[in-house]
Simulated assay, not measured.
Amino acid sequence: MRNVLLLCWGLMAGLAVAAPSALAADTPMQLMGRWVERGISGSIRWDLGPDSIAVTPIDAQGRPMAEPQRLDVLYQRSGDGWAVVVRAPDGRAMGEGRAEVRDGRMMLLLPGIGSHELQRQ
């Protein structure tokens, strides 16, 4: 019985160590951080995190003009880029978009929001 308990503890410890490294491998670090979309009528700041995207309109000095709108997302490797799955508050997928980074710019396509060209801030 003692050997079974030790084996179980060993397996759980191994899983605890393996889980964070698996998460890190699936996180698109080149996407994470603050990006800006410049438009004719103003700019929008996009803050990409490991499980959410915050979208905030900003003024010419970069100050927020409204509260950020948050989207829960899940990233999945897809070809040369990343699939971006937008999730409902209950966790179910609402739609899938795409993100690709090239030459310091990101093309981000989100369902229901459209296509956006972003520059790293």
Rank of each mutant, 00 (worst) to 15 (best):
M32E: 02
M12C: 14
A99V: 02
A60H: 08
E67R: 08
Q76S: 05
R2L: 03
M1V: 03
A83R: 15
I53R: 13
I40W: 09
R63I: 10
L5P: 00
S21H: 05
G49D: 15
E67C: 03
M65P: 00
Q119K: 14
V36H: 09
P89I: 15
G14T: 12
L118A: 10
P20S: 09
A19T: 11
M106V: 00
T27S: 09
G91T: 06
L11F: 15
D90E: 05
Y75C: 06
R77D: 14
L108S: 02
L109D: 10
L109V: 15
G114F: 03
P89M: 13
V101D: 00
P50I: 02
P20K: 09
Y75P: 07
P20N: 05
L15K: 03
R77P: 07
G42S: 10
Q76E: 13
R87G: 04
L11H: 10
M106G: 08
R34A: 13
L6V: 12
W9F: 14
A83Y: 09
G95N: 09
P50E: 05
V36T: 02
L110Y: 08
G33I: 15
A93S: 13
V17R: 04
A54Y: 09
R38H: 14
N3I: 11
L23F: 03
A60W: 06
W9V: 15
E117I: 09
G95H: 04
G10Q: 15
Q30I: 00
P50F: 00
D72V: 00
T56M: 07
H116W: 11
A66R: 03
M12W: 07
A93I: 08
P28E: 09
V17K: 01
Q76M: 01
W46A: 05
Y75R: 00
S52C: 05
R63N: 14
A93Y: 01
I40M: 14
R45I: 00
D51W: 06
A19N: 01
S21W: 13
A54M: 09
C8L: 15
D80S: 11
S52A: 13
R63E: 15
L31C: 04
A22L: 14
I53G: 06
G49M: 11
R2V: 02
Q121G: 07
A54R: 15
E96G: 07
G112K: 01
M65C: 02
W9S: 14
P111E: 02
L74Y: 09
M12D: 02
L108V: 07
G49Y: 13
A99S: 09
V4M: 07
R63S: 15
A25H: 06
G33E: 04
M94W: 02
R105E: 13
V55G: 00
I44L: 14
W35S: 00
G33P: 05
A99Q: 08
L110V: 13
E117G: 06
G104N: 11
N3A: 14
D90Y: 10
R105N: 11
T56L: 07
R2K: 11
G104T: 11
L118I: 08
E100K: 06
V101F: 01
R105G: 08
R120S: 07
A18D: 05
V17Y: 11
G112M: 11
G39D: 07
V55T: 08
L23W: 04
H116T: 13
P50C: 03
L6F: 04
L23Q: 11
A24N: 02
V84W: 12
V17T: 12
A16N: 07
S78L: 12
A13Y: 02
S78H: 13
